[in-house]
Amino acid sequence: MDWRARNQAGYWAFLVHRVSGIALALFLPLHFWALGQALEGEARLESFLRWSEQPLVKASEWTIVLLLAAHLAGGLRVLALEFLPWRDWHKGLAALAAAVSIAVGLAFALAL
């Protein structure tokens, strides 16, 4: 398929939603493993947290948070489209989802 045909809001909303979903699904086992380290005692979790202070890791963490926010926003869009009675403003949901995700990403970046 041609990008000229795909270049509309709904397609981008879908793509972000799908790619973020895949990334999150792949990230989760790692996330759970890291937290499970606490079972070995506080020191193991602490040493993992120290490792994760590296800039590259911090950047990846921020990306994951952004992806989570994006996937949530996109998911709320799908739930709205599928369960609410159709209204014309539903076409604007993709843009709204994008805006909210970026806001959350910013909030996390500022908190770091």
């Binding site: 045909a5 795909r6 509309q8 809001a9 709904g10 397609y11 909303a13 879908f14 799908r18 869009r77 799908v78 489209l81 599928e82 159709w86 539903h90 076409k91």
Partner: peptide
């Protein structure tokens, strides 16, 4: 998956997504 290309392109203004 609600890409909504159908709704975007329908010349009759129908929203198949809905």
């Amino acid at each position: 998956h609600s890409h909504m290309s159908c709704t975007e392109r329908c010349p009759k203004g129908i929203a198949p997504t809905a």
